[in-house]
């Protein structure tokens, strides 16, 4: 066992012991988030929209790149929205370089699902010339420091990055985007945000750090539209959940969803 694994194991035993007494190792309430720092426009020039989110020691950048491309033949008048994620090896000693693994792909797809299903981006508005040219909006989630709860950090970063995004004007002569012009804001129909609850033994906690997350038996990510209705869900982990557990976690997620939205609103108003 490496030194890191030993420390983790000691931590895990401590977390379990404290949780049996209704406490968390850092004194937080079960549904209390760590300190959150949201930095919109983190990529000053090269991305069309971006945001860096720090949740405790977890640090994630979402960068939006807008390109022009030909639409898919079956939907000639719709643009394209894509979400990708990378667990860059600088973010944790156990992350490996290489093509995106299943964790990266799940992270990207869970964030994608909330955005897509909420109808936040109407891909029809991304059409430039039907059958010929459409905007392709790509969100890249880049993990810089991993200390748990990547899904929520990535969801917040993606939402704020999209709200910051401009569509550079399309120049029909060259068939390219004029990135030197500001362009119009990306039309946004809704605001999707996901919150994840983590089940450890009989308790449910939110915004776990790495050690807490590493002993979670199950997790439930709930995506919300701005009106508070649910637009996506993902269950993770090995342990089955009951109907009562699921509805209870969803209720708690809804509360935190409001808390985080307030924080985002304050940051955007600055």
């Amino acid at each position: 066992m490496t030194k890191e694994e030993e420390i983790l194991q000691v931590n895990q035993e401590y977390i379990r012991r404290r949780m049996q007494q209704g406490e968390r190792k850092d004194g937080r309430a079960f549904d209390e988030l760590r300190e959150i720092t949201i930095t919109p426009n983190y990529i000053h020039e090269k991305a069309e929209g971006s945001c860096c989110v720090q949740l405790g020691n977890t640090k994630v950048i979402a960068g939006v790149k807008v390109n022009v491309g030909t639409p898919f033949p079956d939907v000639p008048d719709e643009g394209v929205l894509m979400v990708s994620a990378e667990h860059a090896p600088l973010a944790a000693s156990h992350f490996e370089a290489g093509p995106p693994g299943e964790n990266s792909i799940e992270l990207a797809r869970v964030v994608d699902r909330a955005i897509r299903e909420s109808g936040m981006i109407d891909t029809g508005t991304l059409c430039i010339a039907a059958g010929e040219a459409v905007y392709m909006v790509g969100i890249d989630i880049h993990v810089l420091d991993y200390d748990g709860n990547l899904i929520d950090a990535a969801a917040i970063a993606s939402l704020v990055a999209l709200l910051q995004t401009n569509l550079p004007p399309y120049d029909p002569e060259t068939g390219a985007l004029d990135r030197d012009s500001d362009g119009d804001a990306l039309p946004v129909q809704d605001k999707a945000l996901s919150i994840t609850g983590y089940v450890i033994d009989d308790g449910v906690i939110f915004d776990p750090d790495y050690a807490e997350e590493s002993i979670a038996d199950a997790r439930l990510t709930v995506g919300f539209k701005e009106d508070g209705t649910i637009c996506s869900v993902q269950k993770g982990g090995w342990k089955p959940l009951t109907r009562e557990q699921i509805t209870d976690i969803a209720q708690q997620c809804a509360q935190l969803n409001q808390t985080v939205r307030e924080k985002i609103k304050n940051v955007m108003a600055e």
Binding site: K46, A47, S50, I61, G63, P99
Partner: peptide, 18 residues
């Protein structure tokens, strides 16, 4: 040593991976 460009670091998106 691993040098890597974030996908959003350049004008045209960088495809992830070396």
């Amino acid at each position: 040593v691993r040098y890597n460009m974030a996908p959003f670091s350049t004008e045209d998106r960088q495809k992830p991976g070396p």
